[in-house]
Structures are given as structure tokens and as C-alpha cells.
Amino acid sequence: MKNYLRITHYALLAIGLALLFTAQRNQTALAQNPTPTDDEVNRIAHQLYCPVCENTPLDVCPTEACRQWRDLIRQQLSQGWTEDQIKQYFIDQYGVRVVGEPPRTGLNWLVYILPPAIILAGAILLFRALRAWTKPSTTAAAPRSKKEAPKDEYVARLEEELKKRK
């Protein structure tokens, strides 16, 4: 009887351990392969562009190529890839044109630096021009005495003619 109880005890222990191990394995499997939602896929797809149609973000592109790409993103997410890793993969495979914004390297920096620089330069020029136009000239329209008047023969003749007409 004692042996029977012992065997039963060990059997129950073994079953318990087996169940625990199986549950742990299933839990681990679930943690490694979560199914990415459409929102998670589209969040990355939105930053990529269809390679075969003009200016269409991947998340709204209806072509077969885009569907395949979205599936690939889903697969990569389920394998634990990060957003940056996925984007880099697409750049490596299909070129920089697949990303919405050019990578900040080399001549691409011009895209980021030039527009604000041009706007800034334009603003400075506009400011200077407006200041020059609105600032009253200290020399313009100043009354002059006869003595200060220039000895311009034409002006003198004009004034003389005007006097005669008065």
C-alpha cells in the first residue's frame, strides 16, 4: 500500500511537471510569435512607398507588390524586428526611394538644410528691403534755402518761368 501511494505520488508529480513544462513552452511560443495587428504593420508601411506606383504610401497601396511587402513587414514584426531594422531592410533591398524621407547622409543633407536656409535668407532680404522702403530719407524732401539750392540751370529757368506765369 505504501509503495502504491509512493508510485501515485511520483506519477502525479511527473504529470504536474509535464503540464507545467508544456504550458511554459506554449507561453514562450506565444511571446516569441505575437501576431502583429494591421495597425502595427500600417504604422511602418505608412513610412514606406510603393516601388512601382508614383507617390503611393505602402499602407494604402492596392497593388499586389504592396500586399506582398505588407505581408513581409508583418512577418518581420512577428520575428521581433524593430521598426528601424525593417526600414533599413527595405532600403537595402529596394533603394532609398522606398522611404518617405531621404536618409540623413551625404548630399541628402542638402534637402534638409537648403529649404530653411533659403527661407532665412529670403526673410533677411525682405526685412532689409522693407526697412529701406519705410525709413524716411533724411535728405529727401528737405526744404532747402535758396542759398543751398543747386545751381542747376534748368531748375533756375523752370522757376523763372513759373514766376512769370504767376
Partner: peptide, 22 residues
């Protein structure tokens, strides 16, 4: 009578800036 004669020096964009812009 007044005379509108502007004798102020011309204040435009400096030459070096014009060259860079062009």
C-alpha cells in the same frame, strides 16, 4: 518750394551676396 533730391548712397544687396545668390 521743395526739391525731392535723394542724395543718400544706394543701399542694395552687397555684391558678394549677389554673386552667391546667382
Amino acid at each position: 518750394m521743395t526739391e525731392n533730391i535723394n542724395t543718400a548712397p544706394h543701399r542694395g544687396v552687397p555684391l558678394w551676396a549677389q554673386i552667391i545668390i546667382w
